[in-house]
Amino acid sequence: MGEKRPYKARNPGGGRKKRKPEYDAGKKLKEQLDAAVVLYNSEMSLQAIADALSLNPIKARKLLITAGVYGSDTAKLVRQTFNTFRETQDYSTAVTSTMVALQLSRPSVTSYLPYEKGVYFPEEAEAENISAGAERQRHYRAVVALRKDPCEVNLWKCVVAFRGYKFKTMSSSPFTYTLKKGRGDEFTKELWIDHREGSKSLALSSVMLAYHNIGKIGEVVDRPKALGDIRGVSYIYGMFYRFGLIDMPEKVKEKMTK
């Protein structure tokens, strides 16, 4: 056996760097709480508050409960029951005990309890508003859904999920894209590519055209032009690889990972 190396303590704060060092869950929660309270104090209905914050009413109510401004007989009963159990039980066990005592489901109980760590953000939330972990989960769910059921609907959901993600073209040139919202607060069918040459638009119809030119999901596509003579296909090629729709030759992947 070789000679043992002396133990070297890790430096405080050492290790893997955070992907989003600027993300502050507490700050984001406070911003949501402040916005909800302002709307609540203006005598808006729970549904109207939820619509304004792009949340469902249950999540909006939970925000107001967290802020301490919302009250109802049910909310008061759940909180009192939970707090009694919480004196001798951990959080999860106290929730279960409250469920049994009040004959309520787990979602019903937790919906009347304040947030303790972070805050829910909808799928439409911008990347800077969610943690790196939540963003990875968003990407994973979108890719799995697309691979399980390849269709235009799931491809569009993947496009929405990956806005702000750093892709690479075949030549290893990095790029991202954003989506803008139009009427009805819905995303328009146009991707705005942010590349070193500046910003340019890419129509969703071009993305769908390239998608239908794929012979078999997951097959190796040698070059972008193999997807068709389509404007912006070099970007689509990098996106499709990340979405799991196509594979690349090994030499190309090696170049992209350098």
Results as ranks from 00 to 15, higher is better:
122 P>F: 02
170 M>N: 06
13 G>W: 11
86 R>A: 08
167 F>L: 02
191 L>R: 02
97 S>C: 08
189 K>L: 02
74 T>G: 00
78 V>A: 06
189 K>Q: 06
63 L>P: 06
65 I>H: 12
235 Y>G: 03
68 G>T: 05
119 V>A: 13
31 E>H: 08
251 K>P: 00
137 Q>A: 10
59 K>H: 06
168 K>V: 10
68 G>N: 06
183 R>Q: 15
228 G>D: 03
123 E>C: 07
231 R>P: 01
244 G>E: 02
11 N>M: 13
148 K>M: 09
244 G>K: 07
165 Y>Q: 12
89 Q>Y: 14
32 Q>F: 15
85 F>M: 01
196 R>G: 03
204 L>E: 10
106 R>P: 01
145 A>W: 02
25 A>K: 09
214 I>D: 04
248 M>Y: 08
96 T>C: 00
224 P>E: 02
164 G>K: 12
192 W>E: 11
44 M>P: 00
76 K>Q: 14
109 V>F: 09
159 V>P: 08
32 Q>N: 12
94 A>C: 10
103 Q>I: 01
30 K>E: 13
167 F>R: 10
134 A>E: 15
92 S>Q: 13
216 K>Y: 05
137 Q>D: 13
5 R>E: 14
51 D>K: 13
103 Q>G: 05
195 H>W: 15
132 A>W: 07
130 I>G: 08
226 A>H: 07
21 P>H: 06
20 K>D: 11
109 V>H: 07
29 L>A: 01
78 V>W: 09
62 K>W: 02
80 Q>A: 14
186 E>K: 10
165 Y>F: 15
239 M>L: 07
194 D>Q: 14
156 W>I: 08
64 L>D: 09
18 K>H: 08
53 L>S: 04
182 G>I: 09
13 G>S: 07
40 Y>E: 00
104 L>A: 05
252 V>Q: 03
65 I>R: 12
89 Q>C: 11
190 E>H: 03
35 A>T: 05
180 K>Y: 10
215 G>W: 00
207 V>G: 01
30 K>R: 12
47 Q>W: 01
154 N>F: 06
79 R>E: 15
117 K>M: 10
221 V>R: 00
200 K>G: 06
65 I>Q: 11
240 F>A: 08
225 K>G: 00
75 A>K: 05
21 P>Q: 04
131 S>L: 09
163 R>D: 12
23 Y>T: 00
231 R>V: 05
16 R>F: 12
